[in-house]
Design a protein around this nucleic acid. Structure first.
Lengths: 99, 99
DNA sequence: ATAATATTTAGATATTTTTCTAAATATTGT
DNA sequence: ACAATATTTAGAAAAATATCTAAATATTAT
């Protein structure tokens, strides 16, 4: 699927945005992320998987836990896509303006 | 529905992003927007409605046509949301930094 | 008022997404 | 190896979304 679709689809769900916002304060494991969300751990796990596929989070094992971290690079790419809409003319987006 | 959900949901569909990208070059009416998209005019109309609800486009009648225009203010808000993810600490986002 | 053109709305169907329960996998401690 | 804990995977059911055809609405010209 095209870059933007996975990312924007991932961002389109309130539970997933909630997860991302919690991760802003620091890494959390799956159990911690599931707490407070009105759904089962299995469902949270599903959302985490979508976020991972979108490249918005990374995961590493730490003992029994799966620890999730924000990965901000994709946020940047999404921002860049949005930013093109402030330039009136369409066409390839200039990345730098030497010469 | 919360601000971000409608907006990100609107952006999550490739056909709708295609529509937005065409509108970058200038206003187009519903018929023009439907051309080239692999679906009926009714379906395009549906997508346009979602974009309108998200505040991403405006529409005005011009004779027999409905003319669609980009509205960039919501793009800005979406960008702002994304931008908060580059500040590690969570909490209310400072809008300006006088004082 | 009628016809022609442009677009939307209604209702139906197909696909995708969300969520659940139950079972499976992985790690740690005994 | 076995039990306890953390998390994911599988499969099913419910809810949301995308798309179609047909009918309805709005504008313009005759």
């Amino acid at each position: 699927m095209a870059f933007s679709s996975v990312v924007f689809k991932a961002l389109a769900d309130p539970s997933r945005r909630e997860i991302l916002e919690r991760l802003r304060a620091g890494d959390l494991n799956a159990g911690e992320l599931a707490e407070g969300l009105p759904m089962t751990r299995a469902s949270v796990s599903h959302h985490l998987n979508l976020l991972k596929q979108a490249g918005l989070v990374r995961v590493r094992r730490q003992g029994q836990n799966q620890v999730y971290t924000l990965d901000t690079t994709v946020f940047q790419e999404a921002m860049q896509w949005l930013m093109t809409f402030f330039q009136k003319e369409s066409g390839p987006v200039p990345r730098n303006r030497r010469g």
